[in-house]
Nucleic acid binder design. Structure first.
Length: 289
DNA sequence: TGATATGTTATCTT
DNA sequence: CAAGATAACATATC
């Protein structure tokens, strides 16, 4: 489910809550969801939690291995303190409305892994479709993996020159190139749709047909929507929940995504939905040329 | 019942 | 070989 802003939201929250905590137990309820020997985690103390592309990395004190997590389409990481109860969550969220469907007991039928900490708090990895995973790899493997990753939209290495080179080198539809995780990290379907609307570019156009000016507009739009997504704590669409089991707010600011038939915020045209690369694609025929 | 679903990658086709 | 298209992963919801 989560795109970069959603993963970033989760990673930041985990970094805050898990730092210094000691793992005392790991239960794997679905073997496909955990790669490696979970026993190895016992007794480890968490140094920090970070994000690279759409992966979450957990680093430990005095250990040369890391835990890498990918939520794919439907993964969730929900942390609950000792003696968690509904009243506790409601107290924690100032003015927010906890989504009722998530105020429930865990583990449930979609829980794949549970990590227990020495302070009796617990982290639940839920994943309906079981595409996501947690895996233990060595620090060296992790560094190697990072080497092979393209720059994230929010990285400073993601320059306009780089973006231009990528787009000019492909004849595919511009939206598919923007979403290509081999070339650009972190631009998923929701944000790709919205960035193209903001830049007023038809998502179906061949990437190499964009002018330098259009590329620049798209580059800026992409950074802008991703930052907006982070600011609003991600988009709650389908299964996205933060570590408290609560949703984000970006969905209230969608420009095109899931807005078929509604008015374009630029030109009052009607948002249209088409299919591109097997994915739902939303755009405004009025202003996206 | 059938279409659809946020991500990634393996495998097919051109 | 390379670029691009498509299927696959597992499950729920509309």
């Amino acid at each position: 489910m989560p795109e970069l802003p959603e993963v970033e939201t989760i990673a930041r929250q985990l970094d805050r809550t898990l730092r210094g905590k000691k793992i005392v137990g790991v239960e794997v309820l679905r073997t496909k969801s955990f790669v490696g020997k979970e026993k190895e985690l016992e007794g480890r103390k968490i140094k920090r939690v970070g994000r690279e592309a759409k992966m979450i990395v957990v680093e430990f004190f005095s250990w040369d291995k890391v835990l890498v997590i990918h939520l794919k389409m439907t993964g969730q990481l929900v942390w609950r303190p000792k003696n968690w109860d509904i009243a506790h969550i409601k107290r924690e969220v100032a003015g927010g409305h906890p989504s009722e469907d998530w105020i429930k007991e865990l583990p449930d039928k979609h829980t794949r892994v549970v990590i227990d900490f020495s302070d009796k708090s617990r982290l639940f990895f839920n994943d309906l479709r079981v595409f996501g995973w947690m895996k233990i790899i060595t620090r060296d493997q992790w560094l190697e993996l990072r080497e092979g990753l393209p720059p994230d939209v929010v990285d400073k290495e993601f320059s306009l020159e780089y973006f231009m080179r990528i787009l000019r080198g492909s004849g595919r539809a511009v939206k598919l190139v923007v979403m290509d995780s081999q070339k650009i990290g972190g631009a998923g379907n929701i944000y790709a749709n919205d960035a193209l609307n903001l830049a007023k570019i038809d998502p179906r156009r061949s990437a190499k047909s964009l002018s330098a000016e259009e590329i620049k507009k798209l580059y800026e739009a992409l950074k802008k929507v991703i930052k907006l997504g982070i600011k609003y704590g991600g988009a709650t669409y389908s299964s996205f929940r933060d570590t408290r089991g609560l949703g984000g707010k970006y969905q209230d600011h969608f420009l095109t995504y899931k807005r078929e038939g509604e008015k374009c915020k630029n030109c009052r045209g009607k948002i249209k939905k088409v299919k591109l690369g097997g994915r739902g694609t939303y755009y405004c025929p009025g202003c996206q040329i």
